[in-house]
Design a binder for these strands. Structure first.
Ligand SMILES: NC(=O)c1ccc[n+]([C@@H]2O[C@H](COP(=O)([O-])OP(=O)(O)OC[C@H]3O[C@@H](n4cnc5c(N)ncnc54)[C@H](O)[C@@H]3O)[C@@H](O)[C@H]2O)c1
Ligand SMILES: NC(=O)c1ccc[n+]([C@@H]2O[C@H](COP(=O)([O-])OP(=O)(O)OC[C@H]3O[C@@H](n4cnc5c(N)ncnc54)[C@H](O)[C@@H]3O)[C@@H](O)[C@H]2O)c1
Lengths: 211, 211
DNA sequence: GTATTTTTGTTAAAAAATTCACATTGTGAA
DNA sequence: TTCACAATGTGAATTTTTTAACAAAAATAC
């Protein structure tokens, strides 16, 4: 397998999420068009993605749910799991910790960081909150590879720099301030307002078309 | 202007966010490569996007920040603004309301919905919380066009159906359960775990390459 | 046992998005 | 003035992503 498209990676994660639900419900096989329906895409798209990862279904029976879950895991997960930290234990940081807690996954939130002395030293949903001062040390000790940035926007850039200095390998930035990282650090930025504005644009477009 | 690419719409929103900051700082003009730097894309990409919306900069001086902000507004915003509701006033719902509060924008969160009697009747950051039972009425009365779904995953599908019945035009689904809507309703789904798994994949890839 | 249906896997085509390459031109320096 | 530079704007080329089309084969129907 040479090189998976970006979009395929995202979809594989989504397929797995859907497949896990099917598996829980006791479904042993699934057709490409069933997966497609759930994800609002086409069956060809699904088959193409699975082709790219080299998975072969059974003709007329579809794909083996369990096998496919496992294969997707082999492709996208790190074998030994991967440690994650949240920087900024405010509304969004807490919400995320809460959301992740309990999700058994190769990704584990093992630390939070904050500057607020009232938060430092406590744990939230089992995740200890450390002082930002100790970041380098904690990142090293816990082999943390990914940081989720949920500090106030004005501290985003400085905090991203700290993360890079601490040796983090990937950053997921939820603040609305784009940050800069060296090219060996993988960066993903997401702003909810952008998404909402996109929805709004297409709603407006549709209304204009109706006229 | 015939038809803007999906990606261009997202970037326009991001450009505007960056431009607003520049404007606040008193910067009157900006070059395509400056915008590009902020957004981690190429200058050609920026120029192409602006070409598509028909904006023309000044040679050697760049783009007029104020003018461009206004033009992007004309393209992506609805003239009279657009009302938004949050369904599920839990961790994430509250965090979002908090985040949006005060952002002056054409998009305004005007209502929240919940099933918890302790929450119904209160306001959060100025947004009143209504019973989900009253959704149809409130949506109509307040001309709400977009719903942000932040209910527990198991209620996502039923709640999306309610929104559609209430006459909503766009849904932004933050739950990990894909929902179904008729084709005249614009749907955008986002799962933070997918994004995190994507970051993790590329981190893993980089580590493998290093070996 | 043959035909029909249904589903996979894949090659080829199309569409969408990005980048290249470069003509154009305003600005400032020599 | 003339030259070199630095920026925009865009047609063409390239790359990426999606979709169409269809052969192959298993299951089912008759
Ligand atoms: N709330 C949302 O739904 C939402 C959505 C999208 C983006 N965001 C963005 O996410 C960020 C956080 O939002 P929030 O609502 O959680 O804000 P918040 O104010 O509730 O939380 C911020 C936290 O960061 C801590 N902090 C401050 N400075 C810090 C520093 N230098 N290092 C580490 N921690 C620091 C604060 O003590 C606080 O606990 C903001 O940038 C916001 O724009 C929020
Ligand atoms: N917390 C996060 O960071 C996060 C991130 C991504 C996605 N999500 C998803 O967002 C959703 C909400 O997460 P949360 O952490 O805010 O959960 P939460 O339990 O804190 O909040 C859910 C809220 O929805 C209300 N509710 C329950 N049933 C309802 C119904 N039928 N109609 C309306 N309201 C109802 C509850 O009373 C509660 O206030 C979940 O689906 C979760 O998976 C959360």
């Amino acid at each position: 397998m040479k090189h998976l498209p970006h979009k395929t990676i995202e979809r594989l994660s989504q397929y797995r999420r859907a497949l896990l639900l099917c598996h829980e419900k006791g479904k042993s096989h699934i057709y490409s068009h069933e997966i497609a329906k759930i994800q609002h895409i086409t069956a060809v798209q699904v088959r193409r993605d699975l082709m790219l990862i080299g998975y072969t279904g059974t003709l007329r029976k579809g794909y083996n749910v369990k096998e496919l879950i496992d294969l997707i895991g082999i492709i996208i997960d790190s074998e030994d799991g991967l440690h994650v930290a949240i920087i900024g234990m405010g509304n969004l940081g807490r919400a995320l910790i809460n959301y992740f807690a309990g999700k058994r996954s190769k990704l584990k939130i093992v630390a939070g960081f904050d500057t607020n002395p009232d938060k430092i030293g406590n744990t939230m949903s089992g995740v200890p909150c450390y002082s930002i001062e100790d970041m380098a040390k904690i990142v090293l000790e816990n082999d943390i590879k990914i940081g989720i940035l949920t500090v106030p926007a004005d501290h985003a850039i400085a905090t991203a720099d700290l993360l890079v200095k601490a040796g983090i390998k990937g950053i997921l930035n939820y603040t609305p301030k784009p940050v800069n990282v060296p090219k060996e650090v993988y960066l993903e930025e997401y702003d909810m307002i952008t998404t909402l504005e996109k929805v709004a644009f297409y709603v407006k477009l549709q209304e204009m078309d109706e006229e």
